[in-house]
Design a protein around this nucleic acid. Structure first.
Length: 649
RNA sequence: GCUGCUGUAGCUCAGAGGUAGAGCACUCCCUUGGUAAGGGAGAGGUCGAGAGUUCAAUUCUCUCCAGCAGCACCA
């Protein structure tokens, strides 16, 4: 029998018979490692202890002490154990797929009746029972026809389809947990008893389309979380509870920022506090854009469908547009308009007014553009995904040669703003050419190259989404995360070769001929609505002082301090601080609690002492300790803090 | 849009085939209190909307609307 050479993490090499399994390798090293081993890492691959090794490779034996492989195995085995539990309780349920995800796993089932919360309890109980059986896990590679026949005989059509989708050369791997069988790429643990029975929990049931295709069967997906021990599970559940407290929908109510109601789904009623955040942010962005070389414009809300037909939006996004019909009572003939879902066509129309010269490029045209999109009902989410929103939008009309410099310029622009707003790091996703696209390969090469190199100057941490670009050009997405870790696209930068063509924009080049500009769509915050939602969750409502809608409450301890309270409020207001008085007939405890819940960053308490000494007692949000300051000191300090970061000396 | 769940006072929630409750918030009174809820009284609801079953529906059934979770979508 031929030999293979395995290289261990310490660099040592040993020869083994070809086809040796990691289980055998581990046992050959020591008896205890043989017992503790749960899997191997072979090169980059996570390798089941039972799989034969056919080639020279680097190998590391994993034990439960190795977090990443241990958690993957635990979660993956639990997916199978859950599927088994479901089929033991309801034999008619058909199984599909069940991958490991962050913190846990899910498994999709086809069952006529919905799973109820009580069902989850029953499944969980059955899972613990299965774990206690300590059934061995075994695996075999089958040939395709045999596997297909097996699943046809067992009435598991989804598995048949999965096998048909496995590429020709890949092994069809069958796994058994005791008698229960599943098609699975592995790896797995050695027996079900290796899964900790006290550190997992089934979380929820939800619908999910078979193979992610909304035209196909809707399955029922059960989500679970799992960890190595009970403490980690508890920590995770506690973290979820804490995250729920940061939910912008909850904080929006508690801080009296906004509300939404049935009559205007997906649209926001901004209250004075929320609108203060919005306008403060908008003022800041306006200054940044002016400094960044943008000109600001404003364009119509209701635009005839003819323009949307020319731009191509009518064909592609009609379903998602708010249509406004003007009937014969108002106009000579019936007209169909749409609320603008985006600003770009209108910006092109401005560009087209008057002849443009190459000397005008790059022309950076910005608009705080209020858009309306008829988003699918299931997509709506607080103020993060809405039907009426305002983008901090801009379109840069440029030559192809300017793409690279403008990309770099924008990334720097965005980075400075995100830093100011408390987001030093964020995800960047890059999407390149899709299969169906406009524009020549040469131009795509150039555009993709420009986006990538510009981005790499800032970071190499770029997530690639091959083929996910828009049909009109490649794009960058700048992604922030909400309280429970959901990703939200905020900033974006997209190259567009198509729209200038469709709407026939041109400029006169140095050669005296007409040329087509390239359009760079870009948004920094994305939409004010979404960004404010993220901002609230990121800071758990405790916004940076300059953005806080209510900055200071001056609270009287005794009514004899009322006049002084008014004086303090006036002094602070004149220094540019948002200050208000609280001279209600309540105890200071009560006032402190109420304004703390309302996330007011600074409470100034004044009683007899302060009136006499012309001071205030300062209590900052989240701090128990108070400090005494003179009115002059605190006015200077808070006046500084209230200044937006770009205006500070 | 799809699957499931939910919808009762401003908020958080209890309740039940016979006509509605708590805590907080709100209003008034007492209290002038030193850093996360002082005490008392009062007011407040077409039980998401519509239809059906029933002597009787907020409760049961259906349809619609909205919200939540996930999926799909996100120019």
């Amino acid at each position: 029998m031929s030999q293979i050479s395995l290289t261990f993490p310490d660099g040592s090499k040993r020869d083994f018979d070809k086809g040796v399994t990691p289980a055998e390798v581990a046992a050959s090293i020591s008896k205890s490692l043989g017992k503790k081993a749960i899997s191997a890492t072979l090169g980059e691959a996570h390798w089941d202890l039972q799989w034969p090794i056919e080639e020279d490779a680097r190998i590391a034996i994993n034990t439960m002490a190795d977090d990443a492989p241990a958690l993957e195995l635990i979660r993956h085995d639990l997916a199978h154990i859950m599927a088994r539990a479901v089929q033991e309780i309801w034999p008619d349920v058909k199984v599909t797929i069940g991958p490991v995800i962050e913190n846990g796993w899910y498994y999709d089932f086809d069952r006529a009746e919905p799973f109820t919360p009580e069902d989850l309890g029953a499944i969980e109980k059955k899972m613990k029972e299965i774990i206690n059986r300590r059934d061995p896990v075994t695996t075999e590679v089958w040939d395709r026809e045999r596997a297909v026949k097996y699943y046809e005989a067992n009435n598991e059509p989804y598995k048949v389809e999965l096998i048909e989708a496995i590429p020709g050369n890949d092994p069809i791997r069958m796994y058994w947990h005791g008698h229960w069988q599943d098609l699975c790429r592995g790896p797995h643990l050695q027996h079900t008893g290796q899964v900790p029975g006290d550190s997992f929990k089934l979380m929820s049931v939800a619908g999910a389309y078979w193979r992610g295709d909304s035209d196909r069967q809707m399955l029922q997906r059960i989500y679970g979380v799992a960890f190595k021990n009970r403490d980690d599970l508890k920590k995770h559940l506690h973290m979820l509870e804490e995250a729920a407290k940061r939910d912008h929908r909850k904080l929006g109510r508690e801080m009296d920022l906004f509300h939404m109601q049935e009559e205007a789904p997906g649209q926001i009623f901004w209250h004075p506090n929320g609108w203060k955040i919005y306008t403060t942010l908008q003022d800041y962005m306006r200054r940044q854009q002016t400094r960044g070389g943008y000109v600001e414009v404003n364009t119509p809300q209701v635009v005839d469908r003819k323009l949307w037909e020319r731009s191509g939006h009518w064909e592609k996004y009609q379903e998602n547009m708010f249509i406004v019909e003007v009937d014969e009572e108002h106009a000579r003939e019936k007209a169909i308009n749409a609320l603008k879902p985006m600003n770009c066509p209108c910006h092109v129309e401005i560009f087209k007014q008057g002849l443009k010269s190459y000397r005008d490029l790059p022309l950076r045209m910005a608009e705080f553009g209020s858009c309306a999109r008829y988003e699918p009902s299931g997509a709506l989410h607080g103020i993060m995904r809405v039907r009426g929103f305002t983008q901090d939008d801009a379109h840069i009309f440029a030559t192809e040669d300017q793409i690279a410099a403008e990309t770099e310029r924008f990334i720097g622009f965005l980075a400075g703003i995100y830093r100011d707003l408390g987001f030093p790091s964020y995800k960047i996703k890059f999407s390149d050419r899709p299969d169906t696209r406009a524009g020549s390969d040469e131009i795509w090469d150039k555009a993709e190259e420009a986006l990538l190199t510009a981005t790499r100057k800032v970071t190499n941490d770029i997530e690639l989404n091959p083929g996910e670009g828009a049909f009109y050009g490649p794009k960058l997405e700048f992604v922030l995360t909400d309280a429970i870790g959901r990703d939200w696209q905020c900033g974006t930068f997209q190259v567009d070769f198509v729209l200038p063509e469709r709407l026939d924009a041109h400029y006169i080049g140095a050669d005296g001929n007409k040329h087509r500009p390239v359009m760079l769509h870009r948004a920094t915050l994305g939409s004010f609505e979404r960004f404010i939602g993220i901002l609230i969750e990121e800071h758990a409502g405790k916004l940076p002082f300059w953005l806080a809608p209510r900055q200071v409450v001056v609270a009287s301890i005794t009514s004899e301090a009322d006049d002084y309270v008014a004086y303090v409020v006036e002094t602070l207001t004149r220094a540019g601080v948002r200050a208000e008085a609280d001279i209600r007939n309540e105890k200071i405890n009560y006032k402190v609690r109420e304004h703390s819940v309302g996330k007011v960053p600074v409470i100034l308490a004044v009683g007899h002492r302060e009136v006499e000494e012309r001071t205030v007692t300062v209590r900052r949000l989240g701090e128990k300790q108070t400090q005494v300051a003179t009115l002059d000191e605190i006015t200077a300090e808070l006046g500084r803090d209230a200044t937006p970061p770009d205006l500070r000396a």
